[in-house]
C-alpha cells in the first residue's frame, strides 16, 4: 500500500445562497500520508469545516463539490457512489466533530453507538464489538470502561463525550481521521489533554490525521504539515517547521505574531487578532482575498489571480505577490 492516504487536488465547494453563489472552498489541494498530521488553521468561516465535510462527502444539502483529484487509499471518491461512500465512511475514514455535547444520540447507550460502527463494517460478533469498544474506551483514557457501555450520553461530561467520539472514530481502525476543532466546545483545562490524546493515538495507530484547531501551541507540537486557510483558499502551506520558522504570507505572519519562539507557545494561545473582517465569498472575488487587511497591500494585489508560489524551501508555498525575501524582511521590520 502506498504511503499516500488522502490526495486532494483543486477541491471546490459551492453553495447557492439568496444573494448568489457562495464559494466557501476555492480550489484547495493537499495530501495526507500515513502517520502524518496535517493541521488546518484559519479564522472562523474560512472554509475549514466544509473542506473536511467535502472529503467525507457529508456536505450540507445544497452544497456541491468538485475536484480534479479526490482519492482515499488510491480509490477515487468522486466516482464512488453513495452506497460505496457509506462503506468507506466510518471504516476507512472517520470524523470527530466540534460539538461533543450534541454529537451522540441521546436515545442510545454509549456501548450501542460504539459497537454499531464496528458491526456495520466488519464481520464481528457482538461480543467482539463489545471487547473492542472497551479496549478503545480504555485507550482514550476512560476509566471503568466496561460499565460506561451501559451509560447514556447525558450521563457523561463534554470531555468524556468527546473521548467517546474519538473511540468511536477508531472502532474500525481507519486510515484517515479528521478532527474538526475537537476541543473548541470543551473546558480550556481539558482541551490540550484531548488534543494530545488524539496526537498520541494517531502515532500509535499510524493513521493519517487532519486536525483543524485554533490552538497554535498544539499545532506547533503535533503538526507535521500545516495549511493556513483564508477566505476559502490555502494561503500558505508547508511542514510545521517551515511555516512556523519562516512564515511568508502576511496572514500567517499575523496569526503567528503572538508566537515569538516556535514550539514554546503558551497552551491554548488564541489566534492573533488581525484588524478587519473576512471578505464575503459570494460571487467572484478578484485579486488577493487578504488585500483589505494586509499591512503590505499593493495596487497589483487587487486584480487578477494570486497564485501559490514557492517559499524558501521545497514543499513550502504561499499565496502572495511578494517574494519570500521581501516577506521575510517585512517580518523582521515588524518584530523590530
Amino acid at each position: 500500500m502506498s504511503d499516500l492516504i488522502l490526495e486532494v487536488r483543486d477541491l471546490v465547494v459551492d453553495i447557492p445562497v439568496a444573494t448568489g453563489m457562495l464559494h466557501p472552498v476555492q480550489s484547495i489541494s493537499f495530501d495526507v500520508t500515513r502517520g502524518e498530521t496535517l493541521c488546518i488553521v484559519g479564522e472562523s468561516g474560512c472554509g475549514k469545516s466544509l473542506t473536511s465535510l467535502a472529503v467525507m462527502d457529508l456536505l450540507p444539502g445544497t452544497a456541491s463539490r468538485t475536484a480534479s483529484v479526490l482519492k482515499l487509499d488510491d480509490e477515487d471518491l468522486q466516482s464512488a457512489g453513495e452506497r460505496r461512500m457509506t462503506d468507506i465512511r466510518g471504516n476507512k475514514m472517520a470524523m470527530i466533530f466540534q460539538e461533543p455535547m450534541t454529537s451522540l444520540n441521546p436515545a442510545y447507550t454509549i456501548g450501542n453507538q460504539l459497537e454499531e460502527a464496528l458491526l456495520r463494517h466488519k464481520q464481528v460478533s457482538g461480543a467482539e464489538a463489545r471487547e473492542r469498544a472497551i479496549y478503545l474506551l480504555e485507550k482514550v483514557g476512560i476509566t471503568a470502561a466496561a460499565s460506561r457501555l451501559t451509560q447514556y450520553p447525558h450521563q457523561l461530561s463534554g470531555g468524556l463525550r468527546q473521548r467517546v467520539m474519538i473511540a468511536m472514530a477508531l472502532m474500525c481502525g481507519p486510515d484517515l481521521i479528521i478532527a474538526d476543532e475537537p476541543t473548541t466546545a470543551l473546558d480550556v483545562t481539558i482541551q490540550a489533554q484531548i488534543l494530545h490524546l488524539l496526537a498520541d493515538l494517531q502515532k500509535e495507530f499510524n493513521m493519517g490525521m487532519i486536525l483543524i484547531t485554533h490552538d497554535l501551541g498544539v499545532v506547533a507540537r503535533v503538526a507535521d504539515r500545516v495549511a493556513v486557510m483564508y477566505a476559502g483558499q490555502i494561503v500558505e502551506t508547508g511542514t510545521a517547521k517551515q511555516v512556523f520558522e519562516n512564515p511568508t504570507h502576511p496572514y500567517t505572519q499575523g496569526l503567528l505574531e503572538c508566537i515569538p519562539i516556535p514550539g514554546k507557545t503558551e497552551r491554548g494561545a488564541p489566534l492573533g487578532s488581525i484588524p478587519g473582517i473576512v471578505p464575503s465569498l459570494v460571487g467572484d472575488l478578484p485579486g488577493c482575498h487578504f488585500a483589505d487587511r494586509c499591512p503590505h497591500v499593493m495596487d497589483a494585489c487587487r486584480s487578477g489571480q494570486v497564485d501559490l508560489r514557492p517559499s524558501f524551501e521545497d514543499g513550502h508555498v504561499f499565496r502572495c505577490l511578494l517574494t519570500p525575501d521581501q516577506s521575510a524582511a517585512n517580518l523582521k521590520k515588524g518584530a523590530a
Partner: peptide, 22 residues
C-alpha cells in the same frame, strides 16, 4: 439536522438505519 445524525452518517450507517434507528 442534528449533530448526532451527522455522526451516524459519518459512521457510514445505512440510510435506513440513520432514518429509523437514529
Amino acid at each position: 439536522q442534528s449533530d448526532y445524525i451527522r455522526t451516524a452518517k459519518a459512521k457510514g450507517l445505512r440510510p435506513m438505519v440513520v432514518l429509523f434507528k437514529h
